[in-house]
Simulated scan of single mutants.
Amino acid sequence: MLYRHFNTLSEEEPEAQVELTTTIEELIAIAEYSAEFPICLWIYGDAESKAFMNEKLSELPPMEHIQSIINLPHIKRLESEALGYAKADEKLALKRFRKEQASFNKQRKNSQRTNS
């Protein structure tokens, strides 16, 4: 959505383009990093959020146990049998992301050509 609405969001201030680009890059890095973990919990970074996260994490079994549960055949079957609208399909999400990214890059190149 940030790629799709980049021009609208950054029209008012030129500095907003740099901030939006930085935000997009950070979100992509977070998404790529979090793909390595079966369960992710992200917080704001303040002490209260950290205490909440530690409380919730202490209730969970070790990561190895969680991973082994996720890899059980009946859990995999539930995932594969879920209706398309009942979950976020990673392949479709990646396809949408790449399409929006390509469109965004094309717009930037065209605007750079017209500005030059």
Rank of each mutant, 00 (worst) to 15 (best):
L78W: 06
C40I: 11
I75G: 03
I66R: 11
L41E: 10
K56Q: 14
I43L: 01
L57P: 01
P62A: 00
I43N: 00
Y44N: 14
A82E: 03
I28C: 04
F37M: 03
K76M: 12
S80T: 10
K56D: 02
I75S: 02
F37E: 04
I70T: 03
W42F: 13
A16P: 02
P73L: 13
Q17G: 09
E25K: 12
E32M: 12
A35W: 04
A35N: 07
E36Y: 06
V18C: 05
A29Y: 03
I75V: 13
S68K: 15
Y33A: 13
E64H: 05
E48A: 07
D46K: 09
E19I: 14
Y33I: 06
A31C: 14
W42E: 10
R77C: 05
I30E: 08
L20V: 02
G84F: 03
H65E: 15
R77T: 10
E48M: 04
Q67R: 15
T21N: 14
I30A: 03
L83R: 14
E26L: 10
E19K: 11
D46H: 05
T23E: 12
A35P: 01
K50Y: 07
S68V: 08
S34G: 06
S68Y: 13
S80W: 00
Y44I: 14
T21A: 12
T21Q: 06
G45I: 01
S34C: 13
L78A: 08
P73H: 06
G45A: 02
N54D: 11
E48S: 06
S34E: 14
R77N: 08
F52K: 15
Y44R: 11
I69K: 08
N54K: 11
P38T: 14
Q17L: 11
A47Y: 04
L83I: 10
M53G: 09
E55A: 13
S58F: 02
I66C: 07
E25W: 07
F52T: 15
I24A: 00
F37N: 07
